[in-house]
């Protein structure tokens, strides 16, 4: 399996969202909107495509199901694999970001990228 293939952004953000604890689908959408400062709004179709894949890869699992107002709510949580994967991916992204920042600083162009607003 492609355990180490880079996660796509929606998947990464979904895992990030679930790192805070079990959530149902719509709560994940809201949470992602919040942590991305409104930049990423995951559509329901995209969300469940990603959820299906993450479940298949064993990164998330069903926590519990509830019926609220006669609507099904299924809560998902990170699996141990998912936690490891999120940590590894975050490490990778941090390294890349740090390298980018260091080089931008070294060449004195940091301000061009978007200095303090």
């Amino acid at each position: 399996m492609r355990d180490d293939a880079p996660l796509r952004e929606p998947s990464y953000l979904i895992l990030t969202s679930l790192a805070a604890g079990p959530r149902h689908g719509y709560a994940v959408i809201e949470d992602v909107r919040e942590i991305s400062a409104g930049r990423v709004v995951i559509g329901v179709g995209t969300l469940y495509t990603a959820i299906d894949r993450l479940r298949a890869d064993g990164l998330i699992e069903v926590d519990r199901e509830e019926v609220v107002d006669s609507r099904l709510r299924r809560y998902y949580r990170l699996s141990d694999d998912g936690t490891r994967r999120l940590a590894a991916e975050t490490e990778r992204l941090t390294r890349h970001a740090a390298a980018a920042r260091a080089r931008l600083n070294a060449s004195g162009r940091a301000a061009l990228g978007g200095g303090p607003a």
């Binding site: 329901v44 969300l47 609507r71």
Partner: peptide, 17 residues
Amino acid sequence: RHRAEYGPEMLAALLAG
């Protein structure tokens, strides 16, 4: 298969949004 697995919660999420 996808409908059976996710249909109800997708509908709930759509309506919630």
